[in-house]
Design a protein around this nucleic acid. Structure first.
Length: 296
DNA sequence: CGTGTTTGACCAGCGC
DNA sequence: GCGCTGGTCAAACACG
């Protein structure tokens, strides 16, 4: 991990003077995890450097209140620039706050005194919405819309309050797949893209024209790692997470970016925490310790 | 022609 | 009630 990345990480973690990151209390729905925030994706992939081997994290990780920060360097796949360091992914409290703000605000005034049918519809709508799993993560990237293997159709763009950068709205183009994602650039760090996924893919990652799985991490070195996941089924990432609900407080969907993030994360040290019953061969590929994300 | 983007309009929720 | 904001729609447009 370069110093840059570490700086970036700490920036995300400890900027408690930011208005959007100080209100976890208002985001009870947020579930933050901290498997191992001290590793960059590079380290995860290639093993730690000697320096980092000696590195001891300060006493700042407590229970589940700190955000997961996993830095992932994007390969040269998709639209991601070819420079190895041009794109890094992390998840953070800031992203959680950014992505979750809406959740915390909406539904507060649900006690409508309107007619029962309207109220019922509202409740139903709310329940439906809350059923949609969400999580957000941050990607250090020069491009806004990172290739992640799925096909997305942009259906809207809005100016973001307090930010010079617009927010883009995407929907998965696959029929009957209602997964959406929002992409916006952090106003605090313009080099950072905040991506929020909502919903669950119910289909395979579509192959691109060359019959390969596209993706922001789709460089050749990554593809072999993708294979087992492809073989795993249409909802592989979902299945993956579904196997670790006790770890992630979640029982269903996951973004494909997370999918890649997790897929590409190579174990270099396995902790001896209990594994899910069906962790199976995934344990060879997925180091549950070094990946992370949060739901919003 | 199929697919995806752009962009202004519209709607609903929320705070004041 | 009103204004602000976020999210979505859909027509027009661009592109391969």
């Amino acid at each position: 991990m370069s110093e840059d990345y570490r700086e970036f990480y700490y920036h995300q973690l400890f900027h408690d003077d930011q208005p959007r990151s100080d209100d976890l209390s208002v985001h009870p729905h947020l579930q933050l995890f901290d498997p191992n925030p001290y590793l960059s994706f590079t380290e995860i992939l290639h093993g730690p450097t000697t320096d980092h081997d000696k590195y001891s994290p300060p006493e700042i990780v407590k229970e589940e209140e700190n955000p997961v920060v996993v830095v992932v360097e994007a390969g040269e796949g998709g639209e991601t620039p070819a420079t190895p360091n041009s794109s890094t992914t992390t998840s953070s409290m800031e992203a959680a706050a950014a992505a979750g703000e809406e959740y915390s605000n909406k539904g507060k005034k649900e006690e409508s005194q309107d007619d029962p049918s309207k109220k019922e519809a509202k409740v139903k709508k709310k329940a439906e919405k809350e059923k949609q799993p969400r999580f957000a993560f941050m990607t250090k990237s020069e491009v806004d819309h990172l290739e992640d293997g799925y096909r997305w159709r942009k259906y809207g763009q809005k100016a973001v309050k307090n930010s010079p950068y617009p927010r883009s709205y995407y929907r998965c183009t696959t029929q009957k797949c209602g997964v959406k994602k929002r992409v916006e650039r952090s106003y605090e760090d313009p080099s950072t893209v905040i991506t929020t996924y909502e919903g669950q893919h119910n289909h395979h990652v579509p192959a691109n024209h060359r019959g390969q799985v596209a993706g922001m991490f789709g460089s050749p070195m990554f593809n072999p790692l993708l294979m087992p996941f492809e073989a795993g089924g249409p909802n592989f990432p979902q299945q993956l997470l579904a196997q670790m609900p006790h770890l992630y407080g979640y029982d269903g969907a996951v973004s494909n970016n997370l999918y890649h993030q997790r897929t590409l994360t190579q174990p270099h040290h396995q902790h001896s925490q209990q594994l899910p019953p069906d962790y199976g061969l995934l344990q060879d590929i997925i180091p549950k310790q070094e990946s992370g994300f949060f739901y919003v």
